[in-house]
Every structure is written in structure tokens, then in C-alpha cells.
């Protein structure tokens, strides 16, 4: 079992956070959030991975043969749905923000300060 996928997941998480903290464009921030979330896909799939195993569909392989964990795949699918919802909502807000303020820079939105 390689540690590479875990390293990739951690890297995606960090780079997503860096992007969120430094981006000057709302669309860019939404993309960074998607990058951050894709770290959870990699992490989940890496946890369920078995080497030399087939997909967990037991229709055409004998029962008891080696298969990867189907649970994490279900979790990843749920996660994808969650991401679609959040990203769609945020993009809708970004479109409205551009209409309303004429800018996508989060620092130049009407300030809710203090």
C-alpha cells in the first residue's frame, strides 16, 4: 500500500486552503473549494483501495474474490452530490454579486465590517 494517495489528499487540502485565503476572485474561490473537496474523494477512495482487487460487483466474479471496499465508493458518491449543491449555490451567489457590485473581488464587496 502506497502512501502516495494520502500525500495527494493532504496536498489538495492544503492547496485548496491556500487558494481560499489568497484568491481575489469569487469564481476562483469556488474552484478552490472544489479542489479542497476533491481531497476528500482521494482520501476516501484511497482508504477503500485494495491492490489486485476488482470492482465490488459480484455479478460476474466468484463470491469471496478480492474486491475494493464498496462503502467508501457510496460515501464518495454522496460527497459528489454535496459538492454539486454547494458549488451551484455559491456560483449563483457569485453571479448575483457580480450583477450587484460589478466586481468579483471578495475584498471589494459592500463591507460588513466590525
Amino acid at each position: 500500500m502506497s502512501f502516495l494517495p494520502y500525500g495527494v489528499a493532504a496536498w489538495l487540502f492544503m492547496i485548496g486552503l491556500y487558494g481560499l485565503a489568497s484568491s481575489e476572485n469569487l469564481i476562483g474561490m469556488v474552484i478552490c473549494l472544489a479542489v479542497l473537496q476533491s481531497s476528500t474523494y482521494v482520501l476516501l477512495l484511497a482508504i477503500g483501495y485494495r491492490s489486485h482487487a476488482s470492482a465490488p460487483i459480484f455479478a460476474d466474479i466468484p463470491p469471496g474474490s478480492r474486491a475494493v471496499d464498496p462503502v467508501v465508493q457510496a460515501l464518495t458518491l454522496t460527497d459528489v452530490v454535496v459538492e454539486a449543491t454547494v458549488v451551484a449555490l455559491l456560483l449563483a451567489l457569485a453571479v448575483q454579486a457580480h450583477k450587484r457590485f460589478g466586481t468579483l473581488d471578495p475584498a471589494r464587496l459592500n463591507p460588513l465590517r466590525g
Binding site: 486552503l17 481560499l20 469569487l26 474561490m29 473549494l33 479542497l36 473537496q37 454547494v86 449555490l89 455559491l90 451567489l93 457569485a94 448575483q96 454579486a97 450587484r100 457590485f101 471578495p106 464587496l109 459592500n110 463591507p111 460588513l112
Partner: peptide, 16 residues
């Protein structure tokens, strides 16, 4: 204007 900015701040931090 306000609800947009408030919701964006809310959504991004809580999603993280």
C-alpha cells in the same frame, strides 16, 4: 447587497 456577502462568507467558511 448585504445578504449576498453574508451568505458567501457563511458558505465558504462553513464548507471548509
Amino acid at each position: 447587497a448585504g445578504p449576498l456577502q453574508g451568505a458567501i462568507n457563511f458558505a465558504i467558511t462553513n464548507s471548509v
